[in-house]
């Protein structure tokens, strides 16, 4: 680069050059307007004022706070307070309305479902899944099979107090460990398992000859007390319906044998005291509206 700084005049354009030349290409001097320069200085001044007004420079253990006292933490708290105030109108309606009223009023239903979905994601999804589809041992809340009842009130009761939780009003009722605790012998358990599977017409694995008569005998003596003589279960005790197509702990023969041998006692925590009543109401309506509600 020949930096000769000679202000020649470009022959083609008649404009003087800055004297800068790169490989024979010379830079024309088309001066910017001076106000442009002043705008640039203004932006520099603006940045200095910004440093003074707002938090700007990191220090060793702290930072410059700025004279306006603006804090991002306070800003988000203000926003959240605004949000709460906006929601309050609907929140009050939600608190006042009965669960049935909420579900029958489109605008309340929409609000409760939105709030319920958020609360579900925060609190329930770890066990029941983001969409409430559950997993082995964690009930699917979309289907129409309910251990503790699927009406709005029953769902609310379950969320409030849980099942087998420490709450005084929690649902109670365990599936005993018939095999482990020595109440039934292995052949009896196998026979009972085959009988139970036959109630919902599940396919018999190859090479198995179920002793349904013995199984029925064992069932009536040990299982019917909770699951009912017809095996249709009892939501008072959380005893599942054994005649339908839904098996929380698996419907294959080994799983059913395992359930009878070792017992089952899933735990649902109590949420009263942890979530406010309106949120629980919204959760109730949300879970009910997933599609399985009765």
């Amino acid at each position: 680069m020949a930096d000769t700084h000679k202000h020649e005049v470009d022959a083609v354009t008649g404009i003087s050059t800055t004297g800068h030349e790169w490989d024979g290409i010379r830079e024309l001097n088309n001066p910017l307007p001076r106000w442009w320069l002043w705008v640039f200085y203004l932006t520099i001044l603006w940045s200095v004022l910004y440093w003074i007004a707002y938090p700007a420079w990191p220090l060793v253990t702290s930072y410059t706070y700025g004279v306006l006292g603006w804090k991002s933490r306070e800003a988000i708290q203000t926003d959240l307070a605004d949000l709460r105030a906006q929601r309050a109108a609907f929140g009050d309606k939600l608190a006042a309305a009965s669960l049935e009223e909420i579900e029958q009023t489109p605008e309340l239903l929409a609000f409760a479902r939105a709030q319920g979905r958020a609360a579900f994601g925060d609190n329930c999804a770890p066990c029941h899944g983001a969409g409430g589809a559950g997993a082995k041992g964690y009930p699917n809340l979309n289907d129409d099979d309910w251990l503790w009842g699927g009406s709005l009130e029953q769902i609310q009761q379950t969320i409030l107090h849980g099942a087998r939780s420490a709450d005084a009003e929690a649902h109670v009722g365990d599936m005993p460990a018939f095999g482990r605790d020595g109440m039934l012998q292995r052949p009896e358990i196998v026979a009972a398992a085959d009988y139970v599977r036959s109630l919902s017409n599940l396919a018999v694995p190859a090479g198995v000859t179920p002793d349904l008569a013995k199984g029925k005998e064992v069932f009536e003596a040990n299982c019917a007390a909770c699951h009912g003589a017809d095996g249709k279960g009892n939501p008072e005790l959380g005893a599942p319906n054994l005649t339908d197509g839904i098996w929380l702990f698996g419907s294959d023969r080994d799983s059913v044998i395992a359930s009878i041998t070792n017992g089952r006692a899933g735990l649902m925590p109590a949420w009263s005291g942890r979530l406010d009543p309106t949120t629980i109401k919204a959760l109730t309506v949300y879970v009910h509206s997933l599609g399985g509600g009765k």
């Binding site: 969409g131 589809a133 699917n140 979309n142 289907d143 099979d145 339908d244 197509g245 839904i246 399985g292």
Partner: peptide, 11 residues
């Protein structure tokens, strides 16, 4: 999206 389908108690 989640669940894509649900099996009901009557199958």
């Amino acid at each position: 999206r989640n669940p894509l389908f649900v099996q009901l108690s009557d199958g």
